[in-house]
Structures are given as structure tokens and as C-alpha cells.
């Protein structure tokens, strides 16, 4: 048997990957994209969260002395 025939035999012995495997790859990629987007959204929310917390803290700081002064 000549080398070229042997090479062709090897090439033709390729086994087919399961058809469902592409669905799995596609789902994994979609999940990865979704995770990345959620992470970005969280990053964007973080400054807002901090801003809200700052406002709440400022309000508390303003209100607490009044409450104490009322009671006093």
C-alpha cells in the first residue's frame, strides 16, 4: 500500500462528533456572554449603589441630631 492511500485511509477514518455538541458549545458561549454582561451591569450599578448609600448616610446624619435635640 502506498503512503498516499494510507493517508487517505486515515483521513477517512475520522469519526463524527455528536450533533448535540454544537448546541452545548452555543449554550456555553451564550452563558459566558450573559455572565460577562451581568458582571458589567454590576460594575455600572456599583457607583450608583455607593451614591445612594452616601445620600442615605447624609440624611441620617442630618436627621439624627434633630431627633436627639427634640428628645432633649
Amino acid at each position: 500500500m502506498i503512503e498516499k492511500q494510507l493517508n487517505k485511509l486515515v483521513l477517512n477514518s475520522v469519526k463524527a462528533a455528536p450533533i448535540s455538541l454544537w448546541e452545548r458549545v452555543k449554550n456555553d458561549v451564550a452563558k459566558s456572554i450573559a455572565d460577562e454582561l451581568l458582571a458589567k451591569l454590576d460594575e455600572q450599578k456599583e457607583p450608583r449603589k455607593q451614591e445612594s448609600m452616601d445620600r442615605v448616610n447624609a440624611l441620617i446624619a442630618l436627621n439624627v441630631p434633630k431627633q436627639y435635640s427634640k428628645g432633649a
Binding site: 477514518s13 475520522v14 469519526k15 462528533a17 455528536p18 455538541l21 458549545v25 456555553d28 458561549v29
Partner: peptide, 27 residues
């Protein structure tokens, strides 16, 4: 995919492992 799958399968001899590897590599 088919040639990569066959290549992996020829090394690991496990369909399940070869599928996991192909999915992870493409991701």
C-alpha cells in the same frame, strides 16, 4: 469539529472526555 474530536478521542479513548474538551476549547 470532527477531526478535532477524532484527534482528542485517539488520545483519551473516552467519548465523554473528548466532548468536554471540544466544548471547552471552542468556548
Amino acid at each position: 469539529v470532527d477531526r478535532l474530536y477524532s484527534f482528542s478521542l485517539s488520545i483519551c479513548k473516552s467519548k465523554e472526555t473528548a466532548e468536554d474538551i471540544i466544548a471547552n476549547v471552542f468556548l
